[in-house]
Design a protein around this nucleic acid. Sequence first.
DNA 1: GTATCTGCAAAACATTTGCAATTCT
DNA 2: AGAATTGCAAATGTTTTGCAGATAC
Lengths: 134, 134
Amino acid sequence: MKFKIDNVSNYLKTNDIKPSYQRVKIFEYLIKHRNHPTVDMIYKELALEIPTLSKTTVYNTLKLFVEKNIVIVINIEDNETRYDADTSFHGHFKCRHCNEIYDFKVEMPFIKDLDGFEVNEYHFYLKGICKGCK
Amino acid sequence: MKFKIDNVSNYLKTNDIKPSYQRVKIFEYLIKHRNHPTVDMIYKELALEIPTLSKTTVYNTLKLFVEKNIVIVINIEDNETRYDADTSFHGHFKCRHCNEIYDFKVEMPFIKDLDGFEVNEYHFYLKGICKGCK
DNA sequence: GTATCTGCAAAACATTTGCAATTCT
DNA sequence: AGAATTGCAAATGTTTTGCAGATAC
């Protein structure tokens, strides 16, 4: 995990994001849980302490975080978009039994056939059964 | 590319799929175009020669192909599911300018942290700008 | 006081479901 | 005829959009 953020508000400012109450809470959720949540997971939990929170705000905020490159999108499943505040290169494994997503370290592989291409994003996804579910 | 299929009907039979007219046409589309299409792309083109074709059939058929392991799902983008009849391990690069998806060869990387996990699916996705769009 | 941000309601899409009609053997 | 397949229409679920009210500087 690349980060150790003790002041979320400052971290957002550093990345050109005005730290509203909702934005701070949403980012805190991401770095506290590190569970690669869906919009719905974030919304359901934060709505408990922020009763006025709307899903639109969660969508808006995550979109902003992605634009500012402090959050990446995980498209490991076709019916749910997940988010990760760890933007360093690492792989994601999804267990199709417990649906948990695990991070794993992986060396950047050597890529053929893409001479002259400009690559900005790398995603390495695995699926299977995790140790605990076997 | 792993395959050289000269008789789609037999290929489907070999994989335990009854070769209906629609199924053969859809699989032929996949191996002829090799453009990692969305459901909509397949539907729009095939509807020209099969006026009665429905999108539901395209969805049903692709789902069946995926279950029978002759087609894989590509989730490189969160708002569109794409399909590929080449089930061998290879990477996918999406150009965010022309939206084209390119195949590329890549060595299977060495994975740490997943001892005891059973891995069944591997997906390696890159995004950026392709040679032609630079 | 002006910009921005939030959140409701509606709209837009992609995908799935239920079921009746069609096709195949 | 019986079983499987197709395709329409409706339902579902997720994400986006438009806009009005709230908040921040």
